[in-house]
Simulated scan of single mutants.
Amino acid sequence: MKCVLEGNGVKVFGKAIQALSRVGEELWLDPTVKGLALRSVNSAHSAYTCFLFSPLFFGHYSLGSGSEQGSETIKCKLIMRYVLPLFRCLTSIERNVERCQISISTPSDRVIIQFFCRHGR
């Protein structure tokens, strides 16, 4: 899965992650044909929140090759305390961030979040 957020979309995406951090300690990324779902549930399983970002929200959105989409669905669990600082610092540098690229690689089980800034800063 690969998606690219541009402009204000990076800020909106970051605000959604910040809201999910108030609910639970884990962030689930579920890429589907309908879009990218961000989910969180609290430890008692009494509260659940989901944000679904349509493919139209992204500058580019693809699930990957046919072999990756095959019979397995990609579900990725991240620890919130490692993801939240990436998007929390955006408020101070949001003027310089032009786009954000998120990639999920199923063979290597990696999530890569890259920020691209103006003038390479």
Rank of each mutant, 00 (worst) to 15 (best):
A47P: 06
V83G: 01
R118N: 08
G24Q: 04
W28M: 13
V12M: 05
C76K: 09
S62P: 10
G35F: 08
E26F: 03
S46Q: 13
V83R: 04
V97S: 00
R118A: 11
E72V: 13
R99Q: 07
A19I: 12
V111T: 06
K34S: 14
R22T: 09
D30N: 13
A37L: 10
G24C: 07
V23P: 02
R118T: 08
E72A: 13
K2C: 04
K15S: 06
S40I: 11
F13K: 04
V10N: 03
I104S: 01
P55D: 08
E26S: 12
T32D: 08
K2A: 01
S54I: 10
R118E: 06
R88E: 05
K2V: 07
Q114C: 01
F115T: 02
S46R: 15
P107D: 07
T91N: 11
E26V: 09
E94F: 01
Q101G: 01
L27G: 04
K77S: 05
I93S: 03
G24L: 04
F51C: 08
I113P: 00
V10D: 01
Q101H: 07
A37S: 11
F116L: 07
L20C: 03
S92R: 11
I113W: 00
C76H: 08
C89T: 14
L52Q: 15
V23W: 00
Y82R: 09
D30I: 15
F57M: 12
S105Y: 11
I79T: 06
E6M: 10
E68Y: 07
F51I: 12
L56D: 14
V12E: 09
E26K: 15
N96I: 02
K75V: 08
T106L: 11
N8F: 09
K75E: 11
F116V: 12
E68M: 10
T91A: 02
I102W: 04
W28N: 05
L86S: 04
I104F: 02
L52I: 15
E72P: 00
S21L: 10
